[in-house]
């Protein structure tokens, strides 16, 4: 037990060092950072505008959301997506493809922890841009955001599980590059799942029933769509128990597969490049 604790402590201090390093590196590139934040904003605002247009064509509401309702949904989506996003599906395969991953293997800290430290720095920094943008959008589009105290509490409980589930799923997708080198196809399908089933492009209420059923069985909806619905006052706080159960089950399952897959993958990895 003590060795596990020591190992976790080592990972924690290493990861947080990576986080500090990431923060310092990122402040150097503020211009490209602002553009990334704008891109996330554009995605959320376009989805909002599309659904508002659909609601307008439908006589005011679609799936129980009116224009302000959709605005609230996508403003919260913007913030929570930034918080749960990890760039690992891009960064790890990129390093594998160029051969730079070999350097990460040499360092005395698990490469995934190194990547997560940097990725979390990324999330925190982009929130610096995204939160003021979200505030402006809330006013400009008269967004309805009215969570009950219980819903806020439930969101705080669910979010760490959401981040863990997303990180494990992202890792599984990313490490497939050890065998395949180029994973843009798999990554595309995965991005499609987070967009359409995770609630990033559309709330669960506008999906056809069969698709909503599939979405509820997978982690994507519980990791993003559900906490959004909690904060806009659509989901019931008591459902947080289901959310935590689904997310924890998927995380444990994925982490159990991840361990041997990582070992086999790093063995299969042939440092191409320099």
């Amino acid at each position: 037990m003590t060795t596990v604790a020591a190992q976790l402590g080592h990972m924690w201090s290493g990861g947080s060092a990576q986080l500090r390093l990431g923060m310092i590196q990122l402040t150097q590139y503020r211009a490209s950072f602002a553009i990334w934040a704008l891109s996330s904003t554009l995605q959320a605002v376009v989805a909002m505008a599309v659904w508002q247009a659909v609601a307008a064509a439908n006589g005011g509401t679609t799936g129980g959301y009116d224009a302000s309702g959709f605005a609230g949904y996508f403003v919260i989506a913007l913030i929570l997506r930034e918080l749960t996003f990890t760039g690992i599906v891009y960064h790890l395969p990129n390093r594998v493809e160029t051969g730079k991953f070999a350097i990460y293997l040499l360092r005395p800290l698990h490469p995934l922890v190194q990547t997560y430290g940097a990725s979390f720095a990324n999330s925190v920094q982009s929130l610096v841009f995204v939160i003021p943008i979200a505030a402006v959008l809330t006013i400009a589009y008269d967004a309805t955001i009215s969570p009950s105290p219980a819903a806020v509490l439930a969101t705080i409980v669910v979010l760490p599980f959401a981040i863990l589930a997303r990180a494990s799923a992202d890792s599984m997708v990313a490490i497939s590059s050890f065998w395949l080198v180029r994973i843009s196809g798999i990554r595309g399908i995965y991005a499609m799942a987070t967009l359409l089933l995770g609630g990033q492009f559309a709330p669960l209420a506008v999906l056809p029933d069969w698709l909503a059923t599939i979405a509820r069985a997978l982690p994507f909806y519980w990791a993003l769509g559900f906490p959004i619905e909690l904060l806009v006052g659509r989901a019931d706080a008591s459902e947080a128990i289901t959310a935590v159960a689904v997310l924890a089950a998927w995380s444990i399952g994925l982490l159990l597969v991840l361990q041997p897959a990582w070992r086999a993958g790093t063995r299969a990895y042939e440092a191409v490049g320099q």
């Binding site: 599309v50 659904w51 247009a53 659909v54 064509a57 439908n58 679609t62 799936g63 843009s184 196809g185 595309g188 399908i189 991005a191 499609m192 967009l195 359409l196 492009f201 559309a202 506008v206 999906l207 056809p208």
Partner: peptide, 24 residues
């Protein structure tokens, strides 16, 4: 593969939107 997936996402998004209305 990448192009086919991107096209798939586009068509699925359009299908999702036009489930609710004939014109946007």
């Amino acid at each position: 593969v990448n192009t086919v997936v991107t096209l798939g996402v586009s068509i699925a998004s359009i299908a999702l939107v036009y489930r609710h209305t004939d014109e946007v």
